[in-house]
Design a protein around this nucleic acid. Structure first.
Length: 555
DNA sequence: ATCGACCCAACGAATCGTCC
DNA sequence: GGACGATTCGTTGGGTCGAT
């Protein structure tokens, strides 16, 4: 073991130890930390500076650990592992993880790194999951940033953290101008803040003020919105109150907030006053409105930016601030603002009510249209039925006209009429007659005028001459009487005295057709119809029936 | 529907300048 | 000199969008 007082060591940020040789040069020794695959270098024993004397660490090293020169002292490679360097093996460090584990096992405290020792962060995990945490190499997130950092190396000069030199505080006129611009633009994203930043920097150049970046303006505005209420009898600052009003306008512009009364009331109450209550759980309005500003970029385009020149023509900033303060705290203005909000809420509810009524009316109209269509369909069906009935009646009537006998007689079809015959009539009381036809027809035409008894002889009969010579034995014809072909009947009247004993008469008048049925010997029925007019109602069919007369009856 | 890459906003920590 | 404010950095969570 070497003498501690003569050895000066230094461990860089990566854990690589160096020692100061006799020539005053810093020489790395021990295993390299990054490659470090060899396991033989882990030597037991204390490896940290705690075992070193106070003069072990000299920072910064004179020759500089960042410029480690090859080990020319003993010809041993820097990564050659254990060497014959005259150094206590206990000073050879383990790899970082192994050294920590070994120290933990032995109950030792791991050596604190020199680099970053001034940082006071404890890197505790934030309960909310937010906040800055110490970066570790194993973390996989934000690969892009991490790769950039790793590729750039540790020597890349970073932008100095903290407040920029010469950055003055925001003055009232700057804040007033910023709030004016925010009120005009009502930014919903980075583009809106860029517009505000451009305008504000232009204003700053004209008014010899510090030019602020877009992000600075945005942070300042959001800091105002996020300002919590003061304790005690605190009064709300004018800029905070105005920022809250503008924030409400931005939320309204976004148009994504739910229009609920509770929400409106809460928002108004919370934004207009700051109470003296010390309740800490009350959140600033901006946090409650956070969802409202999400993804509404398209709306932003529709809002043109008013000319800022009108804003610049205002009076002095102090007077403007005073006016705004008095305006904001004026009870009349507050009452008017409250009335306006109430009116907006009422209008929204009325619009919703009207929309509901329109929807109901539309449904009613649809129902009535359905009913109307159903009624039309029923009417058309009724008309079709009426047409069919009328056509049936017409067909029936036409059929009756053509073959009325068969329809009316209800008898089997009559046999064809017998051909007319020649008869020789001799009357008992003297006299003779000859006719061509049927004895019935001759009787109907002559019975009334010649009631005397008579005898008929068929002249074409083979026995005519014999009977005529014998002086008319007196046998009236007994064959069925013919129905027509009476040579002396010129009317359409037809008589049938066959077995059934009825007579059917048809009057072919176009307007008053008439069918008369006479049942021998006492009943006569007449079937007639009304006017045959196609433009009128279906014709009624009548039957006249009477005992020795006529009687009309509707069929 | 799921997954990964990417973007954005919010937040806290750290640092340093300004102001009283 | 201390409090406060401005700025930067890093992280997280949520949303969007395209690929699968």
């Amino acid at each position: 073991m070497s003498q501690p007082n003569e050895i000066r060591t230094w461990i860089d940020a990566s854990g690589q130890p160096h020692y100061l040789d006799d020539n005053g040069r810093w020489v790395p020794f021990g295993p390299r930390v990054q490659p470090a695959p060899g396991g033989g270098q882990q030597l037991p024993g204390p490896t940290n500076g705690q075992t070193m004397p106070p003069n072990t660490f000299v920072f910064p090293p004179t020759a500089g650990p960042n410029d480690p020169t090859p080990n020319t002292h003993s010809g041993v490679s820097a990564n050659a592992g254990p060497s014959n360097i005259p150094i206590d093996p206990a000073l050879v460090p383990l790899p970082e993880s192994d050294s920590v584990d070994a120290a933990r096992i032995r109950g030792d405290i791991p050596v604190p790194k020199v680099a970053g020792s001034r940082r006071t962060t404890t890197s505790k995990p934030d309960p909310k999951g937010k906040g800055k945490q110490r970066r570790t190499v194993d973390e996989g997130k934000n690969k892009r940033k991490r790769e950039e950092i790793e590729e750039s190396g540790d020597e890349e000069p970073k932008k100095v953290k903290g407040r920029s030199k010469g950055a003055a505080n925001y003055r009232d006129d700057e804040i007033a101008e910023m709030l004016d611009l925010v009120e005009d633009v009502l930014p919903l994203g980075a583009k809106g803040w860029k517009v505000i930043g451009d305008k504000h920097r232009e204003w700053a150049r004209d008014n010899r003020r510090a030019e602020r970046s877009d992000k600075s303006l945005e942070l300042k505005y959001k800091a105002l919105v996020r300002t919590t209420k003061p304790t005690g009898d605190g009064e709300i600052p004018w800029d905070v109150d105005r920022a809250l009003d503008i924030e409400r306008e931005i939320v309204d512009k976004s148009g994504v907030r739910k229009l609920e009364d509770e929400d409106i009331i809460d928002l108004d109450d919370e934004a207009s006053t700051i109470s003296d209550n010390d309740d800490d759980d009350e959140r600033p309005p901006a946090k409650k409105q956070k969802p409202a500003v999400a993804r509404a970029v398209a709306i932003k385009v529709d809002t043109p930016l008013p000319p800022v020149t009108t804003r610049r023509s205002r009076g002095p900033a102090g007077l403007d601030v005073l006016n705004r303060l008095s305006q904001n705290f004026d009870p009349a203005v507050q009452a008017a603002r409250e009335n306006e909000r109430t009116a907006r809420s009422l209008q929204a509810s009325q619009i919703q009510t009207l929309s509901t009524q329109i929807r109901d009316l539309n449904s009613t109209v649809t129902s009535l249209r359905t009913q109307l269509l159903e009624s039309e369909r029923h009417r058309h069906e009724a008309e079709r039925r009426a047409d069919r009935v009328e056509q049936q009646l017409h067909m029936e009537e036409m059929f009756r006209r053509v073959s009325g006998r068969r329809e009316i007689s209800y008898e089997r079809p009559p046999p064809p009429p017998p051909p007319p015959e020649r008869y020789h009539v001799r009357y008992r009381d003297g006299g003779e007659a000859r006719f061509y036809g049927h004895p019935e027809d001759f009787d109907s035409g002559h019975s009334a005028s010649t009631p005397s008894p008579r005898q008929y002889l068929r002249m074409d009969s083979p026995s005519y001459e014999t009977q005529l010579a014998a002086g008319f034995p007196g046998h009236p014809p007994t064959r069925p009487a013919p129905q027509s072909h009476s040579h002396h009947s010129h009317s359409r009247r037809r008589a049938n005295t066959r077995n059934s004993g009825f007579t059917l008469a048809v009057s072919p008048s176009r307007h008053h057709p008439r069918i008369t049925l006479s049942v021998t010997p006492t009943t006569t029925r007449t079937v007639s119809r009304g006017d045959v007019n196609d433009e009128e109602a279906p014709p009624a069919l009548h039957i006249d029936a009477s005992e020795e007369g006529t009687k009309e009856d509707e069929v």
